[in-house]
């Protein structure tokens, strides 16, 4: 059982080290630094520009359409990985299956294109 997950042990070690680096750095800084908070420290630096408006604004709906289209084609690409891994064994029928899959999604792509969802202006 131990042997079976061993290829992922380095990933775990990396994860723990990355986490420890951040935590240890913050802890050491917290222990060493003097703590004198005052309002001036929160203001923008002299070379900075004073904020004109709040940073948390509502973004246009266009972003939502773009990110959703990205997500859907992302899922489409994910389906291609196992297909590509088995491509030779699936033969011509596998090619037809994936062709149908892509054609159905191509309809959506053409629809998005025709409706101007990919245009920014």
């Amino acid at each position: 059982m131990y042997q079976s997950i061993s290829p992922y042990i380095p990933v775990l070690i990396l994860l723990v080290l990355a986490l420890a680096f951040g935590v240890v750095t913050l802890m050491v800084a917290w222990l060493v630094r003097p703590s004198k908070p005052y309002d001036e420290k929160l203001s923008p630096y002299e070379c900075g520009i004073n904020p004109l408006m709040p940073a948390k604004i509502r973004v246009p709906i266009r972003f939502f359409v773009i990110i959703l289209l990205f997500l859907l084609f992302d899922v489409e690409a994910v389906f291609m990985y196992p297909w590509a891994a088995m491509y030779k064994k699936l033969g011509i029928w596998g090619f037809v299956e994936m062709f149908l899959f892509i054609v159905i999604l191509l309809v959506g792509y053409i629809y998005a294109w025709a409706k101007g969802a990919l245009e920014w202006e």
Binding site: F64, L72, V75, Y81, E97, L100, G108, Y109, A112, K115
Partner: peptide, 27 residues
């Protein structure tokens, strides 16, 4: 890959229609 493109082929093709519906719906 072996199971999805042979035994569970129909659900796989239905998934593409589902993705298409989501795409059209969002637009």
């Amino acid at each position: 890959g072996a199971l999805l493109y042979t035994k569970y082929l129909f659900p796989f093709e239905v998934a593409s229609v589902l993705l298409l519906a989501a795409m059209v719906g969002a637009i």
